[in-house]
Design a protein around this nucleic acid. Sequence first.
RNA 1: GGAGAAUUGGCAGAGUGGUCGAAUGCGGCAGUCUUGAAAACUGUUGUGCGGCAACGUACCGGGGGUUCGAAUCCCUCAUUCUCCGCCA
Length: 423
Amino acid sequence: MIEISRIREQKDEVVNGLKVRGLDVATEVEQILNLDKQWRTKKQEMDSALAEMNQISKEIGQLFQQGKKDEAEAAKQKTGELKERSQTLKTEFSDLEKQINDLLLNIPNVPNKLVPEGATEDDNEVVFEKGTIPTFDFNALPHWDLATKYDIIDWEMGVKVTGAGFPFYKNQGARLQRGLINFFLDEAIKAGYSEYVPPFVINEDSGYGTGQLPDKEGQMYQVTADNLYLIPTSEVPLVNTLRGDRVKKEDLPIKLTAYSPCFRREAGSYGKDVRGLNRLHQFDKVELVMASDQESSYQELDKMVEHVKGLLEKLELPYRILRLCGGDLGVTAAITYDFEVYSTAQERWLEISSCSNVETYQANRMKLRYKDEEGNTKLCHTLNGSALALPRVIAGILENHQDANGINMPKALVPYVGFERIQ
RNA sequence: GGAGAAUUGGCAGAGUGGUCGAAUGCGGCAGUCUUGAAAACUGUUGUGCGGCAACGUACCGGGGGUUCGAAUCCCUCAUUCUCCGCCA
């Protein structure tokens, strides 16, 4: 959630910044400022009414203690109207607060200056590209056929047991999955992240803290009996470990990593986009999360991007990095770098990681703060990135490292999976 | 799942419905003393919101209620501990 102070003090920057997303929030901003003005007036009215009430109550108390019961009773009579008035003021005050809050919740994060203007993914900016796309002199297969051919993923078994989008990994496929998780976690630990194993379900407050609620509850699986949600990414439990915290500046950045399955309903997705491993309802991911001070968050984002680059190079996959345009940027992000791996057989790029600086957007909601050198309380910046999402890594490995009768493992992965080749 | 006890400031721990934002101790910060440090002593020390400020207001696990007035009474939820049951 955007800070109200930012709208008060830098309204033009906010309005102009959001134009990059193709949004015009000029009217909303004016509405907020107007309500904010009313809110402040109401706050003063309410506070002085309460002050008056407190004063009278105190006097009544003193009268009782002095044994002047009649005077006290008389004073009680006078409070009725005042009490009613302060009740009304309280209601009006919280109504205003709610209105402002609702409007603020609907304003996405203001994009960083580097974010290109644009409406759709076609306007994303390719900022880096590496690796060679292999050419095959045999009939190269897409990963779903390779997976079936080498009996490492069973799609029908998943449909039978659960439904579409919940495949079983088997044999070398299961070991590949397990090896990748360990590989990614070890690399994250080497980069200074602390490893957590988080809960895979979260409560409402956590959903609100990271921004899944109140808008996107339809994208999460719900455990209605207990009012819990299956996590769509371990970013949610990881960032929420810091909810409401006041951290020491010298402890920043706080760097957390976790492996978790991710559950997404993906309502409305269909067709070739969801074929094979392209889009699943449950998939595994190793996530990176960081809380930093305001000054160094962009340097930390660069480090995170470097880390992910390193992973893809060790996996010997052709990839590119996109800077998302305003229209493609998620609501909470100020900037996002997407990593895409090339799917040789599908002849398309698959998103495999997304590294974002959310700045204060989550920290403001969850009141995650630190004190700077002058002793001023400031909101942290939070960052998150995938390192990496497993299914598309597997798709990439299968398709790019295939030959006529098998799939070669990248060297870095061999000690983790315990074999050099799937065949 | 059943029964009981508890939840107070960074921590520990008081708190009869009315000068309680909250005793006291520890810790923190500043100072005195000291060549320096420790000890001792003195002072100071929660957070949010509004306000130029004075100040006001809110916060004693969360939410609701009773009352002129709630940390204190009632309801409800959550969490922790003890006992019983069940169980990987």
